[in-house]
Design a protein around this nucleic acid. Sequence first.
DNA 1: ACCTGAACACCGTTCAAGT
DNA 2: ACCTGAACACCGTTCAAGT
Lengths: 232, 232
Amino acid sequence: MADTAPRRRSRASAGLPPITAEKIIDAAVELTRERGLDGWSIRQIATRLDVWPGVVAHHVGDREAVVMGVTDRVISRIPVPGEDRPWRDWFRSMMVDGREVLRDYPGVARRLCVVGPNVPSALPTIDTGIRVLLAAGFGAEAPVVYRYLFNTAFTLVAVEDDRRHFPTARADMGRAMAAFAEDDSLPGLAVAGSTARTRGTDPEDIAAQETEFFLFTVERSLDGAEAMLTSR
Amino acid sequence: MADTAPRRRSRASAGLPPITAEKIIDAAVELTRERGLDGWSIRQIATRLDVWPGVVAHHVGDREAVVMGVTDRVISRIPVPGEDRPWRDWFRSMMVDGREVLRDYPGVARRLCVVGPNVPSALPTIDTGIRVLLAAGFGAEAPVVYRYLFNTAFTLVAVEDDRRHFPTARADMGRAMAAFAEDDSLPGLAVAGSTARTRGTDPEDIAAQETEFFLFTVERSLDGAEAMLTSR
DNA sequence: ACCTGAACACCGTTCAAGT
DNA sequence: ACCTGAACACCGTTCAAGT
């Protein structure tokens, strides 16, 4: 790995181009793809760029600033569906496409949920989404409905990210539930256990179950919003 | 603070009682209440107990083990509503009461969502909740509906925790949105901005808005589940 | 302006040695 | 069995000094 390797000679005197903030974020984005947003250090970025750690602070700022830079870049990759789509289609597309992007950069979904519209690249999506809800008849509740749908989908992606960092957690959970299948004293868990038993436990089965639950969550949250329209 | 203070003499020779795993988790729970689950170090726990850092590993294990111990203890404080309650009431109570407990221990909600039924103290709640859904007529879908409702509520609490660690984020978000109130080129954000303008920005206003959005999310998620019953 | 090189005050984990 | 005391391999941040 050689993540920590001291350098010897000045970049300028060696004829190398100067480091820029953009190159630092580039390296941080790539490290985030490989190891997640909490899986790299400022010193590892510096090593990749062949400079000393202080250079990162000089061009970008502290770790927090680097993380925000990465977040903004990743969010900008999420496509914004056309505003002519029916509201349920628009949100389903945005959520499913957003999940695809976010899953490649573990930890960014959590950040997105926490900082929300403070990430500039999220603004076009928010603007279009609220307009779509206005057109659907949500009126003054459009902003809160947007937040509700957005949060429900992407906090779930954040949890999926976290679970990948507990590689055994998924299998443990399945096994723990399955163990209750014949427990008469806990009939609720017994039902969950029977369900768990019928499902596969190898990685691709788990991935398919995750996607299935994500899509279930998306549809339920859309139903929850739709109930606001029909009860008028 | 004196979080790092070396000790001098043997506990045994000083007549002090031996450290136990329970006392270590006690100290960690208290530190979590004060600073959150990511706000303390193994060395700070050791300092509070007047021992060397290695003692924590000896009695409990690594940091992960201490965190799971804290999580289990905090979850055990969440009351389980009576199973005779109508399903919406049962879930509303569990979610609102759970939020009250979890908010006192920042970071635990996130853990709970990630490890789920691997925390032993969560099992009685899961068992009762699934039974309540079975009684309500959700049939084989009871387990997935339980997961959906649980996740929606407590991932939101996890985000609320995170936002408290970005003390400016909340106000920045409000100000950022309000700034779009007269932006004709972004009409969706303009609507959100107008809404943001009418709301207070001091801490207790923010707390009230957080609670309001939490309750909104809870009702919408319950509506989303209820739609599964009415469409049969 | 940009970068080096080092220092500072922290981490979690491990482990031989003492009691 | 329990704890000391130290070592190890890391962190993020800061900053005087060089170019």
